[in-house]
Design a protein around this nucleic acid. Structure first.
Lengths: 218, 218
DNA sequence: TTATAATTTTAGTTTCGCCTAAAAATATGT
DNA sequence: ACATATTTTTAGGCGAAACTAAAATTATAA
């Protein structure tokens, strides 16, 4: 139906649109590791296919059709990421590059069966929600500790870094999966923070730690 | 490393070379659903990459390097076929088209982990051997009954057609998985045959049956 | 406001993998 | 052996998706 290049553009535009709703040629070029001139060419083509609105010198935004296609690509991407992590034991940071290729496999039946085989997972290994078959996207439940608002109770649900040394460091700080905590103060410039644990203990953590721990609402 | 188009040529040449060791431009074009002129172009390119020997108007044959690459593609193809059939429950005849796409995913680690996850399978769902990591290809163990030599003892190890009506027909003929038999006579033109069963019973079967039953050496 | 900077588009090429049409080489039949 | 048929290659072109260089537009700052 669509070429891999087209799918990659659609997907990237969708992601950029999450951050800012008008997507510029330059930001797209940077994300896609390509030149602005190439982006302009593709935007014209995708506009002709009615997947996005495009106004010269202004920017672009996905149409309803374009969003639907973006979500189906993202669904496949995240299902494969789940597969690679859960079934094949790939590490958190290795799955993306491979899923980037797998997401382009053309077979509706494959997606249906993969989803069922994996037990209809709702979140990928990064905590990002997996759109359902109809393209519905539920809100993220898992966040980097570094992004969690101060004062809001949270529970640790995953770590990104599985090195023995990192896990040992967490142990020393009394941090582990299922630990309840409240972020007490946050220095925006370096993301370090004080954490109030359920035990009443207060621990000081660095940016290196808060960028490797995932939390969700308590 | 190599484009999908290049990989497809290499793989197809390998398959044709199993049947006849010089591979002609026309036979390749037919298999690849393309035109002879396109094949000539690609043969020149692959020769430049030292993946095959090519002599104008004569034909081509894979080099050692070419064969190595062919076997790694075939390995990936058959591993994915096994996955689709065994884990996702796809039918025998649905797996090929999807594996045709999956075989091009670039990740050595993926192949290693997939192989381990599947339990290092030695044969794909069609009974074709899966080359091992070093490219070693063991002989096929499973053959269509229609291709089995007369007089050689065999044991039924799989059926291709899983329709209830077909299985019922087999039951009437006292044929089932693990049935020991000897093909007694074979009419080359229609592949029908007499089978001598271990029970001493002799059954007459049609081409429709012998083309849907897999046997291996007893 | 006006010069300068940044962004974006246009125009013209390139590479890849395919095509058609025509020419060249090889194979076949009498 | 020779005319005819088949196979294969050459030559020239096309569309997709990238590129560079230059022109056009929009943004910024004195």
């Amino acid at each position: 139906m669509f070429s891999q290049a087209e799918e990659n553009y659609i997907k990237t535009i969708w992601h950029l649109q999450q951050l800012q709703q008008k997507v510029s040629t330059n930001s797209l070029a940077e994300r896609m590791q390509t030149k602005p001139a190439s982006v302009t060419d593709m935007l014209k083509k995708l506009e002709a296919k009615k997947l996005l609105h495009y106004e010269k010198y202004y920017g672009c935004s996905l149409t309803t059709d374009g969003k639907k296609i973006a979500l189906s690509i993202i669904r496949r991407h995240r299902l494969w990421e789940f597969f690679l992590s859960e079934k094949l034991g790939f590490a958190w940071d290795e799955v993306h590059a491979i899923a980037e290729q797998l997401e382009h496999i053309q077979s509706a039946e494959l997606t249906v069966r993969l989803d069922a085989y994996l037990g209809h997972p709702r979140f990928d290994p990064h905590g990002d929600p997996i759109p359902d078959a109809s393209g519905e996207l539920q809100p993220r439940e898992q966040f980097l500790l570094a992004e969690w608002p101060a004062g809001k109770p949270a529970i640790i649900c995953a770590v990104q870094n599985h090195d023995a040394s990192f896990l040992e460091l967490l142990g020393q700080k009394s941090l582990d999966i299922d630990t309840h905590l409240i972020v007490q103060k946050r220095y925006a410039f370096d993301q370090s923070a004080d954490l109030l644990l359920a035990s009443g203990q207060v621990v000081q953590i660095s940016a290196a730690i808060s960028n490797n721990i995932y939390v969700k609402a308590d």
